[in-house]
């Protein structure tokens, strides 16, 4: 009987080697383990064994059964993984076929720049405020210390409306409106559109400005420099150098223009910066006492500074578009680039 068991084991293991499909494996399992199976048959003969033989043969029979069960299991697993492998092979895709990209639009490049500028100043505690684009002479000029016979008005080619109002030539009128509505301290930025009669490769009749204003009991010119240097480093990189040159604006005194080290040549001098190493980016200054008087602030009680920058100009430091009128054609081949 022992021999019989050993023969069955050997035969079964031999048979398993040739099994290629799950069906064959199942019929083989029935051949050995089924109700009429070979192993089952042998076990049925256990009753005829002697008392002494029974435990020995029983042990052997269990061992054979266990080892065959395991062998069947292994074969089954091997077949299954092979089958899965085949399945996966048939499912392979051409990974170079196009992905199904979810639709995604892009913000206008000038708006992207404007939003970056806003974010930098907002994080420095400036609040965004806006104001009307159709303005009066009073808010656009007179309250900003630019009376009608002032030569500084020549710097602004103004669009007038037939109703006597005008399109603001800068976002500065919002300074006046904000100061009229609020008591100091004030820390605001004013992003928005402004208009001047100008139309060439570097000028569009509508453009965007960001104006800033800080008014408090004691604001110094050195703080103006600090805020703008901090802005320039965040906007143009922490290696950016900034210089302040005296300039003239009717509504600030002292007034300055600020340059950053050229973003192309890093200050060495190139065509972009007219070989000076510097690029002008904004105008600024301490708020002129006359402006404070126009809004009933006492210039002995408060001081402040204001600054203003052209967004297209700053955007174009990065994008380098030869004709900035391209910004407002809304050509999709253009908009998709940013």
């Amino acid at each position: 009987m022992k021999k019989e068991l050993e023969a069955i084991q050997a035969a079964a293991l031999e048979a398993l080697k040739d099994v290629k499909t799950a069906d064959v494996l199942e019929s083989l399992r029935i051949e050995y383990f089924g109700r009429r199976g070979k192993l089952t048959d042998v076990m049925k003969g256990m009753g005829q064994l002697s008392k002494e033989e029974r435990p020995l043969i029983g042990k052997l029979a269990n061992e054979v059964r266990a080892s065959l069960t395991e062998a069947f299991e292994e074969t089954k697993n091997a077949l299954e993984s092979k089958q899965q492998e085949q399945q996966l092979n048939t499912e392979a895709v051409d990974i170079t076929l196009p992905g199904r990209k979810p639709a995604y639009g892009k913000a206008h490049p000038v708006m992207q720049t404007l939003e970056r500028i806003d974010a930098i100043f907002t994080q420095m505690g400036f609040q965004v405020v806006t104001g009307p684009e159709v303005e009066t002479e009073h808010y656009n000029f007179d309250a900003l210390n630019t009376p009608s016979d002032h030569p500084a008005r020549d710097l602004h080619d103004t669009f007038y409306l037939t109703d006597g109002n005008l399109l603001r030539t800068h976002t500065s009128p919002v300074q006046i409106r904000a100061m009229e509505n609020q008591k100091p301290p004030l820390r605001i930025i004013v992003p928005g559109k402004a208009y001047r009669v100008d139309y060439d490769v570097s000028h569009t009749p509508m453009f965007h400005q960001v104006e800033g204003l800080l008014v408090d009991r004691h604001v110094t010119f050195s703080e103006l420099k600090g805020v703008l240097v901090s802005f320039a480093r965040q906007m143009f990189g922490d290696q950016t150098q900034m210089r302040f040159r005296p300039h003239f604006f009717p509504f600030t005194e002292p007034s300055a223009e600020a340059d950053i080290s050229c973003t192309v040549c890093r200050g060495k001098g190139c065509r972009s910066c007219g070989h000076t190493g510097w690029i002008e980016i904004l105008g600024a200054g301490a708020v002129d006492p006359e402006v404070f008087r126009a809004v009933n602030y006492d210039p002995e009680e408060v001081t402040g500074f204001a600054f203003g920058m052209g967004v297209e100009r700053i955007a174009n430091l990065q994008f380098r578009i030869p004709d900035i009128r391209t910004f407002y054609e809304n050509d999709l081949r253009f908009l998709q680039q940013f």
């Binding site: 505690g125 609040q127 301290p185 004030l186 820390r187 800080l214 408090d216 009991r217 004691h218 604001v219 110094t220 010119f221 050195s222 703080e223 420099k225 600090g226 805020v227 240097v229 901090s230 210089r243 302040f244 040159r245 005296p246 002292p254 300055a256």
Partner: peptide, 19 residues
């Protein structure tokens, strides 16, 4: 300020409270 040189004026951050 102009003759002293704007570049010789210190660069500091505002001390006032943030509104």
């Amino acid at each position: 300020a102009r003759v002293h040189g704007y570049d010789n004026i210190p660069t500091t951050l505002p001390k006032g409270d943030i509104p």
